[in-house]
């Protein structure tokens, strides 16, 4: 008998759940719409929204990018390429920096990989072009004049590498260079 009881219960259960589902869905008829009617109405994009990629400068106004290639290797679509070069004081910077936005998926892995906060994604996504070739951005298109989301960080201050205006031992948390000729213990 319990089998029949179970069958009755299941029939009831299924029927009820079906009807309840129908009611739940129907009850949305007069709910508020979630859709934001872009472009009539511009949505709010958080500062950390992953849109157009920029290259930032450090607080001193120098290019932050040191051409370490980590963004390029982190990129799942291999759409970043750059070439390291250096100035006469040994400061690394990219000779060219190219992002093929027609391949970019805005995953933000480049930003995560960047050890100098140079590459940052910004809340701008309106980059459509009629000609795909225009989606290729070079350094002059990418480089902005400010520090972006991280106003204070300056890589060469903590790198321990001597560059212009900052000799060995002049960075943050650095001791004066070792005097090799000293015989003191």
């Amino acid at each position: 008998m319990s089998q029949i009881g179970r069958a009755v219960y299941l029939t009831w259960d299924y029927t009820w759940s079906t009807l309840r589902t129908l009611w739940d869905v129907a009850s949305h008829t007069f709910a508020k719409r979630d859709t934001v009617e872009y472009p009539d109405e511009m949505p709010y994009l958080a500062p950390r929204h992953r849109g157009r990629i920029v290259l930032t400068r450090d607080p001193e106004g120098n290019e932050r990018c040191v051409a370490c290639n980590l963004c390029a290797v982190a990129c799942p679509t291999d759409c970043i390429s750059l070439q390291k070069t250096e100035d006469e004081t040994g400061r690394w910077y990219p000779e060219y920096f190219r992002i093929n936005f027609s391949r970019c998926v805005y995953c933000g892995l480049c930003e995560e990989a960047c050890p100098t906060y140079a590459i940052q994604l910004t809340p701008d996504f309106e980059m459509a072009e009629y000609n795909r070739q225009n989606m290729v951005y070079e350094k002059e298109h990418l480089l902005i004049s400010g520090p972006g989301k991280y106003p204070d960080y300056s890589f060469y201050q903590v790198s321990g590498k001597a560059v212009s205006g900052r000799a060995k031992g002049e960075g943050l948390n650095e001791a004066k260079p070792v005097n090799v000729k000293s015989l003191l213990p």
Partner: peptide, 8 residues
């Protein structure tokens, strides 16, 4: 790296 961008 850079396959889709080296010659872009």
């Amino acid at each position: 790296s850079g396959r889709t961008s080296l010659r872009a």
